[in-house]
Nucleic acid binder design. Structure first.
Lengths: 116, 116
DNA sequence: TTAGTATATACCTGTCAAGACATATAACAT
DNA sequence: ATGTTATATGTCTTGACAGGTATATACTAA
């Protein structure tokens, strides 16, 4: 479990990060929100902590977890050269943005334009 | 191997994507660049293809692989809310950027400049 | 045809991680 | 002290997956 990439590869961990982006939470709150067992949540939090994605504060008998930006920034930086790449491929970019618009409207799925 | 996140969790696959961002390559070129066995490369390319990260073109007896932007864009979109988050935590942002500067220069540590 | 090159797939094996369950630790209440 | 709540950790099992070797497929060259 060395890299930040492996850490966010796990869906439950992404869900935890998604929860924490809006506000900090205790273990129990995360457990109830994600309907995971308590040990499962604690283990994921351990992984996230070790990788620097979150940090905990002790508050009475609770541990309140909050997000730390650095590892996510690292992921963002890895993506940077690819952003530069796809800015040169405007056609693909536009197809993608169109697909996004479709989703936003919750309209039925549309076949993608075949290329070449 | 459902999600794009799992696909890029694998270091060799990230290396392949890193190669393809500069230019398209054949399987053999990738194999030699990464010093992996040919079957290993083909398997990673299969995963990348199935997930939409790359596509192949047949050219004589070679298959030339090139990048496709969409799945990487999806990763980028997942990061969007976190970018918004850390833009509100400027101190951490600055510590991170300073660390990056250190790395770039590989020079001895320097006092941090206060900003704004 | 045959041989040679380039790539893909089958099969096997070792490793690693996620989840379940049980148990330990810690803080608080009485 | 005992009990109760909140969280962490240990153990075990199961399944996934990465890499290796061997083999299959596809195309080229003669």
């Amino acid at each position: 479990m060395t890299s930040s990439f492996e850490v966010v590869a796990e869906p439950s961990r992404r869900a935890i990060l998604g929860l924490l982006v809006s506000s900090e939470r205790s273990v129990g709150e995360i457990e109830r929100a994600l309907r995971l067992s308590q040990p499962a949540v604690s283990k994921h939090l351990r992984v996230l902590r070790d990788a620097g994605f979150v940090e905990a504060r002790v508050e009475a008998q609770h541990r309140v977890y909050r997000l730390r930006p650095e590892p996510l920034m690292e992921l963002d930086q890895w993506l940077a050269p690819f952003r530069a790449y796809w800015s040169k491929h405007v056609d693909a970019l536009e197809r993608h943005l169109d697909a996004m618009k479709q989703k936003a409207k919750t309209s039925p799925s549309k076949p993608r334009k075949k290329k070449r």
